[in-house]
Design a binder for these strands. Sequence first.
DNA 1: TTGTACGCGTTATCAT
DNA 2: ATGATAACGCGTACAA
Lengths: 336, 336
Amino acid sequence: MARTIDELAVLSGVSRATVSRVLNGGSVSAKTRSRVEAVLGETNYRPNLAARSLASGRSNVVGVVMHIDPHLLFQDPYFSQLLQGMSSALADRSAGMMLWLGNRSKEDTLGTILSMGLVDGVVVTANSLDDPLVDGLLASELPTVLVGHRKADRTASYVDVDGVHAADAMTTHLISIGRSRIGYITGMPRNVAAADRLAGYRQAMKRAGLSVADTIVEGDFNTPTGVTGAASLLDRGVDAIFCANDAMALGALETIRARGLRVPEDVALAGFDDLEFAARLDPPLTTVRQGVREQGAEAVRNLFELIEDRSRSPRRVLLPTELVIRQSTVGGGPRT
Amino acid sequence: MARTIDELAVLSGVSRATVSRVLNGGSVSAKTRSRVEAVLGETNYRPNLAARSLASGRSNVVGVVMHIDPHLLFQDPYFSQLLQGMSSALADRSAGMMLWLGNRSKEDTLGTILSMGLVDGVVVTANSLDDPLVDGLLASELPTVLVGHRKADRTASYVDVDGVHAADAMTTHLISIGRSRIGYITGMPRNVAAADRLAGYRQAMKRAGLSVADTIVEGDFNTPTGVTGAASLLDRGVDAIFCANDAMALGALETIRARGLRVPEDVALAGFDDLEFAARLDPPLTTVRQGVREQGAEAVRNLFELIEDRSRSPRRVLLPTELVIRQSTVGGGPRT
DNA sequence: TTGTACGCGTTATCAT
DNA sequence: ATGATAACGCGTACAA
């Protein structure tokens, strides 16, 4: 029942320093070590992590900041998967995670995070073009890795997927199956991922010599704007609809079917994210899969490099995406 | 650029103790206070939380443990909402959250959590009948609140919803609309919520004098088992299917429609959870709404009571649920 | 290899 | 109201 390292020292007849060495893998004679470990075994001692942090200057805890719209957080598995990936990578290093969601003002959150001795570094989701929280973190001394990135983050470490390339590939796919009037439902204009995907769509359309006048409607990543956005696009006579995420594609599918149109014969449909339900839709949805867990894990690994060598230059990682072609674009196959 | 409280003291010409009082709201003369605060303003000092924890014995951080199947965590918004509720209640107290998911062994996780000086208390999800992690937490000195509970947790503080009552109410609703061959797709047998809901179903059926021989099939809370479970039940000629959660109801709906049966005319369908998609199904799904965010927030509030008065007797809270009646059981209304 | 002694930055106790 | 001063528990130069 030893509560402190001093008590352990007394019980095992050595000095506090020796016990500390046993605990942290210093050089101790085999004999002494086994003696201390014997005591350790029968005493269920637990080190005081606050004291350890204070003395060593490291807490072995990293912060995770996901300061986003609660509604989005609720329904989009993206964030759960991101957490899982981070948690997994943290477990590999026996490190802990402090989590901040958007329940306090960004100023308050920032202040807490920057408190000394709390976290060794932080991973923050950067999905807004201007985010004072991200700016504050980057301006601070605290090692910081972004998940996602803004154009201005060229000097920061980040992990992202190449949304431009992915959206370009999807648009190219739609063109390759003979569609030319390809409508696009985008996300919030200030959302970085939305902007990237839109850019990829534009880029592919332009390369194919197709017009994007009147083919783009604005959504907000939620299903209802997929419903209304698709209605608007169908009125303009599109033969394909590419949605910036699966949630909106779900809404678009509703609208298409409500009008008695066939997918993909009349209108091809594509999403982005490959959420769980995408494969279960009727017809199964063509979409883009991004390794969200892997993003989270990579962000943590990236952060640890920064923590262990703070002078290291920023490392920027673009993870690959995968085009998942299903019957909502290539049709013909057996319907489930 | 004062980094420590001592530097602040020198800069403002007072002692370290006085600065500490200003910071923590001790009694200081207005004059002295304003002097210190002036220095404070131009120096962006941030207290060292590790030192504070060590000296005060409190970290103002609580642990949250959700040691569950990653796959479930991915797709079920339950956990996101729970986190949101907790985060919100923590923000009210300016407290932080450490999060542990199931990436390490329960022994390792338990060991870390029980380390001194890390967290002031812990909220843990208890969804398994026997969980060494929960047992270890309850056996420890650390203030602990469960979300959910096992039968044996009568001496612990917990927050839960009355799943028995809710399932009873739903079953009674199905009976009230004239169904008598009511099939039930349950969750994993060792899952507490699943067991509660099943008990509620049985209870209502028994009270109505209806047989449950051959009306219960086992699922696992995921959509595929809803598909297969419903097939099995339909073969037995049921006129209603009650699923232990919405995800399985989604699968059941697929099966029912694939057989060309009408909902609710031929088969009434009910779920549990009221997930986002439930209202969007065709027909909209009758289900049970439980205030998940509220559960999380209440768990945190409960925990703080325990932290502030460790001798306080355990407080057990059962939050109410709400029957959400939609067209999958009462039909007739306008289809969307 | 082991022990001594100091420092980490803060809160809290006790005088004044 | 304010100021010394002692904890808080651990890591780690430095000395032995």
